[in-house]
């Protein structure tokens, strides 16, 4: 829980051991190279932002790290092992959790059930929750606590299909946390949230245990600069720059990347 309340650690984490190392990572869709030879290093407990204009390949990079999409080239090391060939299930079990740009929740389940199913593996599967007592203590109570943390305690019994877009986004964050990840991949968690919801999200991320590293895709640069230790800029699938928020904020290369994209 070191530095759990602080929002900036600066380059201090660069000395921490690498949790995730992507080397020359490449993914093609037909003739389009969505991610082109990207190198990325996320230290244990680091808050690492991934920014860039639309179509830069940010989501694809998260897909590659999470295992939803296979790499066409390069390799991914996570927690000291090569996970390039592992599927999403194995990677999830190794502690990589994610949320999606379009919130992915189980729409016919209630909010509470969503978190329970997401926590299922971590709670020990069928064997772990076999008795009602264990089910309550290992699944139900932690699920309700997580829902409370993301501000969904009131709607725990509501079917996910009937939650608002912002609520589903927060539900997916609770689901990702339910797996007790070591690496949390968040794809635009603030998009479509109300002001109050964004505030709650910021608090949640700022107080998140430093045992969890976060790789965050976000368009709102104010949040990125406030929350993250390192910022990596992508454009057209290529890495443009990577550094501390202060470095990135003043980098001409980054300004150019954005300016050209807007034009």
């Amino acid at each position: 829980m070191t530095g759990s309340a602080s929002t900036r650690v600066g380059p201090a984490t660069s000395g921490a051991p690498a949790l995730l190392t992507a080397t020359a990572l490449t993914r093609r869709y037909g003739s389009l190279t969505a991610v082109a030879g990207v190198d990325l290093r996320v230290a244990a407990g680091e808050r690492h932002a991934l920014i860039g204009p639309n179509g830069a390949g940010k989501t694809t990079l998260l897909d590659l790290v999470g295992g939803a999409v296979r790499a066409d080239g390069g390799r991914i090391d996570y927690a000291g092992r090569d996970v390039t060939r592992l599927g999403p299930v194995r990677r999830a079990r190794l502690g990589i959790a994610r949320t999606h740009q379009r919130p992915a929740v189980w729409s016919s389940l209630t909010a509470r059930e969503n978190v329970e199913v997401a926590a299922w593996r971590q709670a020990g599967g069928l064997r772990g929750v076999r008795t009602p007592g264990r089910f309550r203590s290992r699944l139900r109570e932690p699920a309700l606590a997580l829902l409370d943390r993301v501000g969904l305690a009131d709607v725990a019994a509501r079917t996910a299909a009937h939650l608002s877009h912002g609520q589903r986004r927060q539900l997916e964050i609770a689901m990702a946390l339910a797996g007790r990840p070591r690496l949390l991949l968040l794809d635009e968690p603030a998009a479509g949230l109300s002001g109050a919801e964004v505030q709650r999200l910021v608090t949640l991320l700022a107080t998140l245990s430093r045992e969890v590293a976060v790789l965050l895709v976000e368009h709102r640069l104010d949040l990125v600069y406030a929350l993250c230790d390192t910022v990596t800029v992508l454009r057209d699938g290529r890495l443009v720059a990577s550094g501390t928020p202060a470095e990135i904020r003043h980098s001409p290369a980054v300004r150019r990347a954005y300016a050209e994209a807007v034009r």
């Binding site: 999830a92 992915a104 059930e113 199913v117 299922w120 089910f135 689901m175 797996g179």
Partner: peptide, 20 residues
């Protein structure tokens, strides 16, 4: 929970995999 897991598979399979 067996029924819950099956319904979750039907709702969103990729999300199930992402949860292990």
């Amino acid at each position: 929970p067996a029924g819950l897991l099956l319904r979750a598979c039907r709702d969103d399979e990729a999300r199930m995999r992402a949860s292990g």
